[in-house]
């Protein structure tokens, strides 16, 4: 439905970076891989009700 190119254009705008043409292809590959990594970590069933590993401490 929405190509990775369109999604990439959006997140580049959000991130405020404007890679030149020469880097576009590599960034797009990285973006697609990134989306796979995201799907992968959201598929871990045991993580459904788990706490993050990064802890906040009120004592600075």
């Amino acid at each position: 439905m929405h190509s990775n190119e369109e999604k990439l254009a959006v997140v580049l705008e959000m991130s405020g970076i404007t890679p030149p043409a020469e880097d576009q292809e590599a960034i797009l590959r990285a973006f697609s891989t990134g989306r796979e990594l995201s799907k992968l970590i959201f598929s871990v069933a045991q993580a459904r009700y788990e706490e993050p590993a990064l802890i906040f401490s009120a004592r600075v």
């Binding site: 990439l8 991130s15 970076i17 890679p19 995201s38 871990v44 993580a47």
Partner: peptide
Amino acid sequence: GAAVAFSGADYVQAQR
């Protein structure tokens, strides 16, 4: 730059 692929929630989920 590949970090643009990740949302805030992706980062939090990675910590879980």
